[in-house]
């Protein structure tokens, strides 16, 4: 199991906790890859929770590793889908008739938690109803401040913008609305001088 202690950072950078069961009539859970492990741990703390839970799960590279475990929890509804974008219409549909008191649990990569949290916020659900737990990849979702394109799953600093091709350094400044960190041109003052990419947090 991969649990990470992120270094302390600036005030816009999200911090993640550990999922804990909360009282409520409805529970929406969304996870990707190793994030399923956090849902399994959550279920083990409160056997009754899953009967009122709707799980949306994106296995990504973990394939079938967690699918059987999630099914065995007998959630009220379980969706296993191929990508966040594929799951998005369903997530929005669920959020559109969410009632007061809905509890939201997000787990997995920063990209998934950030995008799901932005949808939850856009649906008018209070921030306090959302819990998050980081599991798995340290990859970041980055916005290029120059072309505005989003590059998913960035694991090195610097990296190449997948849209405009500029070499960008990875900032900790984070927008919850965009669910992305900011990438800024690294060689603007010395064109062509791009340091070797280093794996994030290494």
């Amino acid at each position: 199991m991969s649990r990470v202690q992120f270094p302390t950072s600036i005030a816009s950078r999200p911090v993640y906790g550990t999922l804990a069961p909360r009282p409520g009539k409805a529970h929406l859970m969304m996870a990707d890859a190793e994030g399923a492990g956090a849902l399994l741990d959550l279920a083990s703390q409160d056997a009754g929770l899953m009967a009122r839970a709707h799980i949306l799960y994106i296995p990504r590279a973990t394939g079938e590793a967690f699918a059987a475990g999630l099914r065995a929890l007998n959630p009220a509804q379980l969706y296993i889908g191929p990508s966040f974008d594929a799951a998005l219409p369903r997530l929005r549909r669920v959020l559109s008739d969410a009632h007061m008191g809905l509890q939201v649990y997000l787990a997995g990569t920063e990209g998934l938690m950030g995008r799901a949290a932005a949808e939850v916020a856009a649906a008018g659900i209070p921030y306090g109803a959302v819990q998050t737990e980081h599991r798995g990849s340290l990859a970041r979702r980055m916005q290029c401040v120059h072309c505005k394109g989003i590059t998913e799953d960035v694991t090195t600093d610097p990296f190449v913008c997948s849209h405009c091709g500029l070499n960008l350094f990875v900032r900790d400044h984070y927008s919850r609305r965009l669910a992305a960190f900011q990438g800024v041109c690294i060689d603007a003052e010395d064109p062509g001088n791009v340091p070797e990419p280093v794996e994030l947090y290494k």
């Binding site: 005030a11 950078r13 505005k148 900032r171 400044h173």
Partner: peptide, 22 residues
């Protein structure tokens, strides 16, 4: 600084990059 990036942030979030003042 970028409005497009900072729009929607609160006072502490948009000031996050400033050194020492926090």
């Amino acid at each position: 600084w970028s409005l497009d990036f900072d729009i929607g942030m609160n006072f502490f979030e948009w000031h996050a990059p400033v050194p020492l003042a926090h």
